[in-house]
Design a binder for these strands. Structure first.
Lengths: 286, 286
DNA sequence: CCTGGTGATACCCGGCCGGTATCGTCCCAG
DNA sequence: CTGGGACGATACCGGCCGGGTATCACCAGG
């Protein structure tokens, strides 16, 4: 068997992401020629052309796209291996729980309270993450578990259990006419003039097109709502961050959102198992 | 970030599995001193002692056990990366389906027939595997999908769907008194003198203790049953391999067995999606 | 006390990894 | 049409590291 080294995978990943040898080399802190050679050697050893060096710069071949996916997974696994090994000798058996900032605040409180009463409980360090960062932290071993929403994060490759399913509400400026209603539909809030939905950044950092304001974090969003410039749809439990200038109205036809607790496959630690058990139990009684 | 190379992980894995530097070096096709140095360097870079070099040979530390798990996962990912990339350029988009030999024969037939009629179908290569080999093939990228039984294989790290749940039957020599019954319980077949349950090899190649005969494949088992020396409990659908000298009697209290179809996370190919859809559909209508 | 077995150390060599300099090619400006 | 700039590939070189052999250090057992 011919083995791929993580160095080669790091190099290829950098080039595949930058689609530019010079910039990739800079990102890797090295010169461009050795990078070119390393990628050529990788292609030779695999017997597969990974990149089209065309006139218009560099492009991924289909095989290259496959390797990019696989290389990312492999590098995550390698990073996780190093981190988890180092953590294994640290005292105290702390658990790191990754949670999206401002999401499911009540659930998190309840989970931490209930877990603290478990016999197998370990100290829990909660890490509040930005969009998509919770999933990354779990994938590369910085976190031992995460509360994820399958809409935003992929559960692929993790073990997971459902914890809580909840309806969504629309958050409106408190004075808005619709804020007086006891329930609304998606169609009603979609058609309101002057309240275009806010736009969140995509994975690549760009924004989808549309009339609404671009927001990057919740405090921006909250202020824009309070100013009467936009509205947003959130899970009911996220009401924790509402201002007095906000009104939340239940949506009768919005898809419900489910929070899962996810952890790396093959994890066998007792404190983690207890955390999962606690979370699932919370979901059942709620 | 300090990165682990797959070479180092291969070396450590070999030593951790052999618990002997000399044998590990031999298995790796290298001399012992460079292997010792490589593992020392790995320990130094991680800042973690992985092995106890005691007077009574080598033993894993707890951190070493963690790394062994993680290293295996990483090496599987790296092997899968190479294989899937190479396969991406092969023509025809063949799918490799790993199945435990002799398991769920009817289901497999039905699946292949139904899949061949799907619009997105690709050519399917069926690989019959020994115990646990199906899971390995899926983990290291030799297979694109597998029919797995969670009792024998871990689904951790895969995406999977339930396909079929079935009861189990006990297979007895045709002339045996109990073979005339229309149903039996586990207790009844456990207590039969002269028919001790056969013993299958464990992961490490050894056998669990017990009075029954040691078997390594189904033909051995079948012959031993036909000779009236043992009996076995199997899913009902495995009746395909029964001899005329065998009798199958339903067990009323054996745990039912569920077959899952599993595939690597993040797989997005249309032929694979069609295969999964076909399999799940089969399970529903059955 | 010697001997066999095992892992660590000492020392050496070749290859590869990464650096600098330069080339070939394409695109575009003028 | 031509010169220049951008970009990846090639040529060449030096140092480090991975791997080899020889040997040491330590322990168990006769």
């Amino acid at each position: 068997m011919e083995w791929l080294e993580t160095r080669e995978l790091r190099y290829f990943t950098a080039v595949a992401e930058e689609l530019h040898f010079g910039r990739a080399a800079e990102r890797l802190g090295m010169a461009q020629p050795p990078l070119s050679r390393a990628v050529q050697r990788l292609e030779r050893r695999l017997g597969v052309v990974l990149l089209d060096r065309g006139r218009h710069g560099v492009a991924l071949t289909p095989a290259g796209a496959v390797l990019l996916d696989e290389a990312r997974a492999t590098l995550d696994a390698a990073a996780a291996a190093a981190r988890r090994t180092r953590r294994a000798v640290e005292p105290g058996g702390r658990l790191v729980l990754a949670v999206k900032a401002n999401g499911a605040h009540d659930l998190l409180r309840a989970l931490l309270d209930a877990y603290a009463r478990e016999p197998d409980a370990a100290e829990v360090e909660v890490v509040l993450c930005g969009i998509g960062e919770d999933e990354r932290m779990l994938r590369d071993g910085r976190a031992d578990a995460a509360l994820l929403h399958p809409l935003y994060s992929s559960l692929a490759g993790f073990d997971s259990e459902e914890v809580l399913t909840e309806e969504q509400v629309v958050v409106l400026p408190a004075g808005h006419p619709l804020a007086a209603r006891t329930s609304l539909t998606l169609a009603e809030v979609a058609d309101v003039p002057g309240l275009p939905a806010a736009r969140w950044p995509l994975r690549d950092g760009g924004y989808p097109p549309g009339p609404g304001p671009e927001v990057r974090d919740l405090s921006q969003l909250a202020q824009l709502i309070a100013l009467g410039r936009t509205s947003t749809v959130i899970p009911a439990s996220a009401r924790a961050w509402l201002w007095t200038a906000h009104s939340a109205v239940p949506l009768v036809d919005a898809p419900s959102v489910t929070t899962h607790i996810a952890w790396p496959p093959q994890s066998r630690s007792r404190p983690l198992a207890a955390l999962v058990r606690t979370a699932v139990g919370l979901g059942r009684e709620a």
